[in-house]
Computed example of a mutant assay.
Amino acid sequence: MSAEFNPADPFALFRQMMQSATPPGAQPFLPPMSVEEVERKIAELKVVETWLTMNLGMLSMQIKTLEMQKAAIAALRPKE
């Protein structure tokens, strides 16, 4: 698997985060063993949450923009 970022892959960031967070040979979903590891995982998940929230906001804005364009086109279309 390539370490390069691929914008066409929506899960690339998550996959990269999970690979870097998991030591070689360890299973990714084993319970953390120390407070520091728990805090690190919380921080990583908050980064992912922020990224997803930002993408959700951009998606909502794109939908609203397209709805406004549709309404403008409908309003400017000559009546039959």
Rank of each mutant, 00 (worst) to 15 (best):
M17K: 14
E36C: 00
A21Q: 03
M18V: 10
P10D: 09
F29P: 00
A72S: 10
V48W: 09
V47H: 03
P31M: 05
Q62S: 14
P10I: 03
E39K: 11
L59E: 03
E4A: 15
V48E: 08
L56Q: 12
K79S: 13
M68H: 08
E36M: 05
N55Y: 02
P24G: 01
A43E: 15
L45K: 03
S20R: 15
M61P: 00
E80C: 01
S2K: 06
M58W: 04
P28M: 06
K41T: 01
Q69F: 04
F14N: 05
N6A: 08
E39L: 11
T50R: 09
P10T: 03
L45T: 10
I63F: 02
L66H: 10
I73H: 02
A12F: 05
Q62G: 05
F29V: 03
P78C: 03
P31R: 06
N55D: 07
M58Y: 06
G57K: 12
M18F: 01
E39I: 00
F5P: 05
F11S: 10
M58D: 05
M18Y: 00
T53I: 03
R40H: 07
E44S: 09
W51C: 04
T65K: 11
L56H: 07
L59G: 04
P32M: 06
V35I: 14
M54I: 08
A12Q: 05
P10G: 06
V35D: 14
E39S: 07
E49G: 07
A21I: 00
E67T: 01
G57Y: 05
Q27L: 14
V35A: 14
L13H: 06
M61F: 08
I73C: 01
A26T: 05
A74Y: 10
G57C: 02
L66C: 09
L30F: 02
G25S: 12
W51D: 09
N6V: 08
M58I: 02
Q16M: 07
L52E: 12
M58C: 02
A21D: 06
K64V: 04
P23T: 01
R15W: 04
M68W: 01
R77T: 15
T53H: 10
T22Q: 03
K70Q: 10
V38G: 01
M61K: 15
L13F: 10
E80S: 08
E4Q: 15
F11E: 13
M1L: 12
P31L: 07
A3S: 15
E39C: 02
S60G: 04
K46Q: 14
V35Y: 12
G57Q: 14
W51Y: 09
K79D: 12
A43D: 13
K79E: 14
L56S: 08
F14R: 14
Q19T: 08
P32L: 02
M33E: 15
D9S: 12
E36V: 07
A74L: 12
E36I: 01
S60M: 09
S34Q: 11
P28W: 07
P24I: 01
L30A: 15
P23D: 03
T53Y: 03
P32E: 12
S34E: 10
K70D: 04
N6E: 12
E36Y: 02
M33C: 02
E80N: 09
K41H: 10
Q69S: 05
M58R: 14
Q27Y: 08
M17V: 13
Q16F: 04
E80I: 05
V48D: 02
G25Q: 13
